[in-house]
């Protein structure tokens, strides 16, 4: 029984395998439509999330399985004070696999230690969000063909942005990947990521506050939202939320085949005018997320 809490729980070979399965699903989805017949996915969302939950649910339905769960802690026994450990022990009796989102960091890890079925981390606070990273990786693979040698610019909230941390960790395992870290000074990548991942692996990167200056170098521009829920102080949020807004003008110097990614939801950091640009791939990225979640569910349920 295997859980996925952190993207690094999966080896690069396993990620290749998942991408291969996802591509096969894209090519012939019908083949997979009954693979999970009779299986149930529990979506335990202690924090509201529309797209991740719906993506997991759609993934399971498309595999022929069924879904049960809750979509915020108010409608779960957590509101009565039940612990994560107890909740997952009970849910393990009803479901074959669990997808869990929780506002506290490490909650899905606790769940995986207590559950008797596989647990997928669907986001734990500002910490990890491995299936978003799988969506990002499939998108990059489909668009660029390979991970090796690409330059990825991350822009926005790089401090609390869990998708950024996970993707940096995942891409750092491939050769000649370089990063441009674009953020206000208050929201830079945490030093432990720089020290323990980037410096330790001798990866080329630099930090800047200037998005437009960095633009021509980028093969991928990964935009993120400054998230209100990550701030203890509302004033800091208001001060920083509009630090970067991507507009068609700012894309003037970007490569013609650059990919614009965003984990969504977007607020205003990408102007809607950018949506028409063929380089804007964030909705395709969301679709890729569903395929990778399907591939992951199949893997963890050991369905052939």
């Amino acid at each position: 029984m295997r859980s996925v809490i952190d993207i690094l729980d999966l080896s690069t070979e396993e990620i290749d395998e998942l991408i291969e399965t996802a591509l096969d699903i894209i090519a012939d989805g019908k083949k997979y439509s009954e693979k999970c017949k009779g299986k149930k996915l529990a979506t335990l969302f202690f924090e509201p999330s529309t797209r991740t939950r719906l993506s997991f649910e759609a993934a399971m339905y498309e595999l022929g399985g069924q879904v049960l769960g809750f979509s915020d802690s108010g409608s779960s026994s957590a509101s009565k004070g039940e612990s994560v450990s107890d909740t997952v022990r009970v849910v393990s009796c009803y479901a074959d696999i669990i997808a869990m989102r929780h506002p506290k960091e490490g909650a899905p890890m606790v769940a995986s230690m207590k559950a008797s079925v596989p647990v997928i981390n669907a986001g734990d606070g500002g910490h990890n969000h491995p299936t978003q990273t799988l969506a990002d990786l499939l998108t990059i693979k489909r668009e660029k063909g390979a991970f090796e040698g690409i330059t990825v610019g991350f822009c926005g909230d790089l401090k609390f942005g869990r998708t950024v941390h996970s993707l940096i960790g995942a891409l750092s395992r491939y050769k000649n990947v370089s990063f441009v870290l674009i953020s206000p000074d208050e929201l830079t990548v945490p030093s432990y990521i720089k020290k323990e991942i980037l410096d330790a692996k001798n990866i080329k990167y630099y930090e800047t506050t200037d998005l437009e200056k960095a633009m021509p170098e980028l093969d991928i521009l990964y935009m993120t939202r400054v998230q209100r829920e990550r701030f203890f102080n509302e004033q800091d949020y208001i001060r920083l939320k509009d630090s970067y807004i991507l507009t068609p003008e700012k894309l003037k110097n970007a490569k013609e085949d650059m990919c614009i990614l965003h984990p969504l939801p977007r607020v205003n950091e990408i102007s809607v005018a950018v949506d028409e640009d063929p380089r804007a791939l964030y909705f395709k990225q969301a679709l890729n997320g569903k395929y990778m979640r399907m591939a992951l569910i199949l893997k963890l349920l050991e369905v052939q």
């Binding site: 612990s83 450990s85 909650a107 890890m109 606790v110 500002g126």
Partner: peptide
């Protein structure tokens, strides 16, 4: 870390 699950689940 106030965001850690151990901050709310005392028995862990």
């Amino acid at each position: 870390n106030p965001r850690c699950i151990t901050s709310v689940e005392q028995e862990l």
